[in-house]
Simulated assay, not measured.
Amino acid sequence: MPCQPLRTHLVSEFLIVGGGVIGMMTTLQLADAGHSVTLLERGQCGREASWAGGGIVSPLYPWRYSAPISRLSTWSEGYYPELALRLLEETGIDPEYRQKGLLYLRVDDEPRAMAWAREVGKPLERVDADFLYDKEPEAVAGLADALWMPTLGSIRNPRLVSALRARLAAMPSVTLREECEVTGFESAAGRVLAVNTTAGPVAGGQVIVCGGAWASGLLERLEVRLPVRPVKGQMILFKTPPGLVRRVVLMDGRYVIPRADGRVLAGSTLEECGFDKTATPDARESLWESAVKIIPALAECEVEHHWAGLRPGSPDGVPFIGAVPGFDNLHVNAGHYRNGLVLAPASTRLLVDQLLGREPILDTAPYRLSEALASTA
C-alpha cells in the first residue's frame, strides 16, 4: 500500500527497512514466529535487484567462493523447494522452482571444481558430448565434454517476490508500507528511537536495515560506514519456443536460464557506475553475442526485454549479517553482491535466529560487522 501520512508512530516489535527478497524473507520468518513486523520500502517490494536477477539457486562457479558463502548457499539450496511449494499453496502464485541441473561448458579450472565437489559432497561430474547434447541439443556444437551438476535449481524471481509480497500482505501481524522512503533516523544513547520517512516517523523495537545497494547510504545517516556499493548488472530476455533451452547453461562467465513458458534469460554484466541503472546498447550487444555463443539458435529469436539492476557489492562478496556495533537495537543484512537470491533463505534465517535468541544455523562470526566497520574507521 502507498505510504500515507502518519499521525502517530507505528510501533511493531520489528521494523525492517528495505522490501527486497532479504527484507521480505526476514519479515516472513519473524511473522511466522508470532511477531509483529513493519516493512518499509521506498518503491514497490521486490522491484530492485531481487526482480532484476536471473534466479539461479547457486553461485555461478561455487568452487571459486569462500567457505562462508558456500555454507549459506548450501543451506539455502535445500530450502527453496519447500518455500516455492508453500508460497504456491498460500498465494496461488507459482515461483516456478525448477531443478533441472546445470551444464558448465569450457571450464578452465576443472580440477579445482572436482576437488570442491568431493569436499562438500556435491554431485558434479564430467560428461561426454553424447550426454551434453542429449541434455541440451541446441548447445554450441563441437564440445567434447562438459561439467554437469544435476541438483542445481532455478527460480523465477519476479514471481517469487510477487508471491512473498502477497503472503506478507495477507498476514495480520505484518504492516507493508510501500512508496515510503527513509529520510533519516532518530537515535539517542545507542538506540534507534524511530525511522524518519517521507510520511513521518515510524518506530519499532528492533530495526533491521535490508537496503541492498542502498544500505550503506542509509547507515551513513547514523555515522555507520558499511562497505557496500552498487554494482550494475544488465540482462536480456529472449522469446523462444518452449523447450529450446531446457536447463541453465553456463559458459565463459555468462549464462542462459530457461523459463517454463519458453522465455530465456541471458546475463549478465558487471559494471561499476554508481547508482546508474541505464540499460545500454553495448551491453545488449555483448549479452546477445554471449547467449548466441552458448545456444546458437537464439540468434533467430526475438529479444523481448533488456534491463539493469544494482547489486549490493561488498569487498569479498560475503554479506554483513548481525548487530551494528554501538547500537542495542540496530541490525543489518546486506552486501550479498551477486548472490542475494541465492543466499537469502540462509542469511535471513541466520539473522532471525540471532534476533530471537535461537541457536543459529551457522557460525555467525564470518558475517559480523565489527571487523568490517573497524577496517573502514
Rank of each mutant, 00 (worst) to 15 (best):
L237R: 08
I236N: 05
P230L: 03
T240G: 12
P241D: 07
P242H: 08
E220G: 14
V231W: 00
E223T: 15
A215I: 01
I236D: 01
L237I: 07
R225Y: 15
F238A: 02
I236C: 08
F238C: 04
G243Y: 11
G243T: 08
W214Y: 15
W214R: 04
G233F: 04
P227C: 06
A213I: 04
L222D: 06
K239E: 15
L219P: 00
L218K: 02
P242F: 04
P227F: 05
A215L: 12
Q234R: 09
K239P: 04
T240A: 15
R221D: 10
L237K: 10
V231M: 06
I236G: 01
V228C: 10
L237G: 06
T240D: 02
V224S: 06
P230Y: 02
G217S: 12
M235V: 13
R225H: 14
Q234F: 05
R221Q: 14
V228A: 03
K232S: 05
A213N: 05
E223D: 12
L222I: 11
M235S: 14
E220P: 13
L237A: 10
P230R: 01
L219T: 00
R221G: 12
L218R: 01
L226W: 03
K232N: 08
T240I: 05
P241I: 13
T240R: 03
V228Q: 02
V224P: 05
L244M: 10
G233A: 11
I236Y: 01
L244D: 08
V228L: 04
E220V: 13
E220I: 15
R221M: 11
A215V: 01
S216F: 00
L219E: 01
S216P: 06
T240W: 04
Q234W: 07
L222G: 05
R229C: 02
R225N: 07
K232E: 05
P241R: 15
W214M: 13
P241G: 12
V228I: 11
I236W: 07
V224T: 07
Q234K: 07
A215W: 01
L237M: 13
V228Y: 00
L244F: 09
A215M: 05
R225C: 09
E223G: 09
P241M: 12
G243I: 11
W214F: 13
Q234S: 12
M235C: 14
V231S: 06
L218P: 03
R221Y: 05
I236A: 08
L226F: 06
V228R: 01
L237S: 10
L218M: 13
